[in-house]
């Protein structure tokens, strides 16, 4: 599984960013390789329109299979995530990345549909 997080920083102890399209960073954790990579989202964050769909497109390119975030994506982004089969879990906006991952593993986050 490749698990993506919306985060304000680039490490496990970074706080989560509750926003999806205008998040500061995307972090992707590859469970098989045990590797955490990050992708700067500032170019998208500055878009006047359609930050959501472009961010969702980026997640697709990052080959994420699961997304963990705070509030959940808007309608446009949600339709891309659905099409690309990326499962989305919300409610992790107040945690740091590590806590969010653990909460996901313990089935404590609700799935966004």
């Amino acid at each position: 599984m490749r698990i993506a997080f919306t985060a304000k920083g680039t490490g496990w102890d970074s706080p989560m960013d509750p926003r999806f399209g205008r998040t500061a960073f995307f972090l992707v954790y590859d469970e098989e390789k045990d590797e955490l990579i990050h992708s700067d989202n500032s170019a998208i964050e500055g878009a006047a329109h359609g930050a959501g769909p472009v961010a969702a497109q980026k997640l697709f390119e990052l080959k994420a299979t699961v997304l963990i975030t705070g509030n959940g994506p808007g309608g446009n982004a949600a339709s891309i995530l659905e099409k690309t089969g990326i499962k989305t879990f919300v409610g992790a906006g107040e945690m740091n990345v590590k806590q969010a991952y653990e909460a996901y593993k313990n089935n404590e986050l609700s799935e966004f549909k």
Partner: peptide
Amino acid sequence: VVSSLSGA
């Protein structure tokens, strides 16, 4: 307003 609400 959607922007205002994000992160509430």
